[in-house]
Design a protein around this nucleic acid. Structure first.
Lengths: 243, 243
DNA sequence: CTCATATTTTAGGTACTCCAAAAATAGCAT
DNA sequence: ATGCTATTTTTGGAGTACCTAAAATATGAG
């Protein structure tokens, strides 16, 4: 049967695979948090991973010893190149798997996050490659997020939250935040707010109030929370009808 | 990100999911070994799992406490109903995954075992179901082994090793043993010795010598080791040509 | 009954976690 | 700028889930 331990228990030899579930998860978490905001502090990691700060500190120290993060006491962590590479590989796995579950197995976009969070750590290079091939080497995951390349390059998309737009603007949905929130995803799908959809802002209520948008010829009212989670790029104004 | 621990660390509450990697692997190992031969001893498990006997004893004691095995010191283990159910579920996962990797992702039958050994522990019920559906609820895995039903029923196939047949007999390959031996699988595929193939014994050399068989109109000489790993059912003699 | 062998026990190690106390930093009033 | 409190971070001790190595013990063959 299996040999799971990537870094052989008890052996001091550090195989080229630094691929422990927990290690990968920490690196991924750090990567994601750094994208949001820097510095990445112990407590932010603890909250994201749902463990106590003490656990985070000791893991960080371990990661530092493995040269996966740079660590200065009390001042947060940053990923080293090696750490970034691992994080991006895990993210690549995650996003490919999400897409595969939807495209090949009929899952919906609100169902795939959990399963991908587990599978991302256990697929072989070969399986990753086969999945990518089956999906025709996709660039984006089902939530509109870019999929890092095998070499560890991720092209980020310039986008702004839907909530930042003014009335009259047309925009295309690039991606959605909070892709782990199934309920929100289901609601968004219901409203037609999925990546690629084009909409026009009709009305913006002040004081973080609801937006009224037109999408697929339907008028929809959207709360501010939701609108902040939907990232869009601006589109040229409505098609100029022949004069 | 994820919550992996099925039985919450530190909590004494025993969730209904007894699904730890290691536990599942032990149960599966015990199931498989029991199929081969009984009793299932500590040392057989240790060898199969490639750990030391001491580790096996302590795991067995843990499994006994969880009512997954019946254990009497020095006399080997048997699975309880609960233990059998877990083992069969894992085997179901394994075999479905093997088939899926081949059918949906273009793997060959010698490449899938390792990956399936890992994935078998981490697919959700829903994913299992989607995979089964995508494969049209298959009955057999790529090596000819029966896939247990979702309810935990496995129909075993009556078959005998190819090495047990006498010259002149026709037989159909049911399944192959040692499905973790990639090299042997590759060799078998090359010879056309895959489940479903029909062959006729032409010659049997004595003293565990090689067999000569005709398969797909080709004559092949097969060593005794290989012939012992190929399980067959007898077929009626050659098609009776119209008189 | 004795001895080789298999099994179990004991002690100790790594990976991860938690909790609680100690230490360091940061925020703020003066 | 200084000093005090609030917050964050680190440390230390302990627990579970594995594992190994080696000592102790039970079994069955002769």
């Amino acid at each position: 049967m299996p040999k799971i331990n990537a870094l052989e228990t008890g052996s001091s030899e550090q195989r080229n695979s630094l691929n422990h579930q927990a290690i990968e998860d920490y690196l991924k978490t750090i990567y994601m948090l750094a994208m949001e905001e820097t510095p990445v502090t112990t407590s932010r990691i603890a909250e994201a991973r749902d463990v106590k700060p003490g656990s985070v500190t000791s893991m960080i120290q371990r990661l530092a010893k493995l040269h996966l993060v740079n660590y200065e006491k009390h001042y947060g962590v940053t990923l080293t190149d090696a750490g970034t590479k691992v994080a991006l590989e895990v993210i690549r796995h995650h996003r490919l798997i999400e897409l595969f579950l939807i495209e090949a197995l009929g899952f919906t976009w609100d169902e795939v996050h959990e399963q991908a969070d587990i599978l991302e750590h256990v697929i072989s290079e070969k399986l990753e490659e086969r999945i990518a091939a089956a999906l025709n080497y996709p660039q984006f995951d089902p939530h509109g997020n870019p999929i890092p390349s095998r070499e560890g390059v991720m092209h980020s998309v310039e986008a702004e939250p839907l909530s930042a737009l003014a009335a009259g603007v047309r925009a295309r949905i690039a991606y959605v935040l909070n892709d782990e929130n199934s309920e929100m995803l289901r609601y968004l799908a219901e409203l037609g707010l999925t990546p690629g959809a084009v909409l026009e802002i009709k009305q913006v209520a002040p004081f973080a109030g609801p937006l009224t948008v037109e999408i697929e010829k339907e008028s929809r009212v959207i709360g501010h929370t939701i609108a902040s989670a939907v990232m869009v790029t601006r589109e040229p104004a409505d098609e100029p009808v022949a004069p």
